[in-house]
Design a protein around this nucleic acid. Structure first.
Lengths: 344, 344
DNA sequence: ATTAGCACTCAATAAGGGTGAGTGCTAACA
DNA sequence: TGTTAGCACTCACCCTTATTGAGTGCTAAT
């Protein structure tokens, strides 16, 4: 059995109708709404074929058809026409980046909110990943007595701080020297590089005031590895109630609980790195509880280094065309804004 | 009509039964389960009285009674017996504070998680409020060229950073001097004091390199006022599905949307400052959408300065006795831990 | 190859009836 | 006078049954 042009038209019609209505689509509906010039009976025959081929499913005998994940995949890859944003959407986004805050986190949080507001799905925005960010400066600030604060500044507007407790009183000027030395060694390196290569090097090389220096190195190590904090900005979890597929309380609860597993969400959203927009449909998800959700992700970058991701989560019956274009646009806006803010 | 001892006993029995079962409580049930030595008929008479007095309500004629908000208030103020924690609860909490992280935020986040896990309600934990925290040090770190990072370290383990963009190249040693001067002036002051008193003083007083200095002051001002970031750690929003009162989809959605209004939640939770545990029951809430939820809050402190709050949100049918003791204990643990970590 | 016609399926909705938990009232009782 | 047993009444809840209608698959005619 081959795809004729008509089969594709019918499939597309079914998908688009179903995405809007959420109800199984019947042959009559297609014949009436989409002018294909054939009768319902013909459409029924084609639909039976499409079902055999695995593109359509029937919830029960006397219902219409709904698209399978395979159908959505075909749609996303070949059928959908990427639209341009509506005026309202574009304005919303523009107004966000008109804000002149200097706090990366705030922008990230707002991005999540806007994404969810204009799409009506659940949005996720990841903070810049430590592993992808470059170190710009290390500074050890004495606070009082044997306490100091180790601060690592990155090119992403995110900074990382750890308290150091020294085993004895320490000269501020010594800390200043150490800070400068570390900055020199770490600058424009990633956390991973520093952790796996440079710190061991330093450890061997240097025989300064051993005890104090070890306190610093320990703090650095703890700062760089232990808690790569998987920080996630979530918004619009309540939006799932817009979709009848989540009207079941159990499903809703499972979904909400899943959304609180920030580490997991983080991994899911950050898994597709290559840049551009990625769509993962229902059963394509590795996590079983996500099998009837779809995820659309995009990346954002500073300069040309990808440093984080944004994502949308919704039912497989998702407005892929709309979401695709919004995610694409949003990723670019965010990247542009951050690059501007932090590099120029 | 007066409260006899028996009326109180009956009221207490009804409340405790209803809190567990969620079903309207009938006279028979009370007579059987709680040994009051009177017949259901007598209890019915008392119940009718209690209803007249506004302590009980009837969902419909042939149903049992449920407690009114007024009844819960009486219960919380006079009837309930604060229990001690179960072994499991205490262990859970202890295990949390055995973690040796140095990042305040992580502890705060974990506190939210544990609170929600052991109570099965929705928990909220506020980050230390900027307005209550004391400044320990100000440091301006040159990054490159005309960029620098302004960092304010507080006694709460929270630091605040803002990017400064200078209008010309700046000497690092100059920034060092400015940092020291600012630290000297700001140390052990609150953000509010600094903002309303000290900054204006400095502005007048000093006629250093005007232009550069203004960049610094602007950054400080923006850091201190504009974005008192109302950061909230939420956990267990899905828990509301454990309660039949939220099985209605509309209610659930409203609730979830409300929880995303972080500023509002922040205000609600931080509103009762005085220390100790505060209980707000249903209609006592000012926000209309919270009228059938109850909120229990407690504060946490560093040394003896209150700096933040923790809260639990659930249906008015809440296990007040349990929640009360947990919140009390948790607030104390968190305070103790933070004080230990940050002061000595 | 397409289509009209028709019998068939099955979820969703509505309507009726029984059940049981609970009440309020009254009259009897200690 | 306070307490209790008895009884009629109410009403949500659940189960069963009937009705409806959207949609299908198959067959025969075009």
């Amino acid at each position: 059995m081959r795809f004729g042009k008509r089969k594709l038209q019918i499939l597309q019609a079914i998908i688009e109708d179903y995405v809007i209505s959420g109800e199984p689509v019947g042959s009559r509906t297609i014949a009436k709404k989409y002018d294909l010039g054939v009768s319902p009976a013909t459409i029924r025959n084609e639909m039976a074929d499409l079902e055999d081929m695995g593109y359509l499913e029937q919830p029960h005998t006397s219902a219409g058809r709904i698209p399978s994940d395979k159908a959505y995949r075909l749609y996303v890859d070949h059928l959908m026409q990427v639209r341009t944003l509506t005026v309202k959407e574009a304005e919303n986004i523009k107004s966000l980046y008109a804000i002149k805050t200097q706090h990366t986190e705030e922008i990230i949080g707002q991005t999540a909110k806007i994404l969810s507001d204009i799409t009506n799905y659940t949005s996720v925005v990841l903070k810049p990943q430590l592993s992808k960010v470059l170190i710009k400066r290390v500074q050890i600030m004495p606070i009082d007595g044997e306490f100091a604060l180790l601060i690592v500044v990155t090119n992403s507007g995110i900074i990382r701080d750890t308290i150091i407790r020294f085993s004895e009183e320490v000269e501020p000027s010594y800390l200043e020297r150490v800070s400068n030395m570390l900055t020199e060694r770490f600058i424009d390196r990633s956390f991973v590089e520093v952790n796996t290569q440079i710190i061991p090097e330093i450890r061997d090389e240097i025989a300064m005031n051993r005890k104090i220096f070890n306190n610093v190195i320990d703090a650095l190590t703890e700062s760089f590895t232990n808690n790569e904090k998987k920080d996630v900005y979530l918004y619009g979890t309540g939006n799932i109630f817009n979709f009848p597929e989540y009207h079941d309380l159990d499903k809703a609860k499972t979904f909400l609980e899943l959304m609180e597993e920030t580490e997991l969400i983080y991994d899911i959203i950050s898994s597709s790195d290559e840049g551009g927009v990625t769509v993962t449909i229902g059963s394509e998800n590795t996590h079983p509880d996500m099998r009837d959700s779809s995820i659309v992700t995009a990346t954002y970058h500073i300069g040309d280094r990808v440093i984080g991701s944004i994502g949308l989560i919704g039912p497989t019956r998702m407005e892929y065309a709309k979401v695709f274009s919004i995610m694409d646009y949003m990723g670019k806006c965010l990247s542009h804004y951050l690059t501007q803010l932090l590099e120029g």
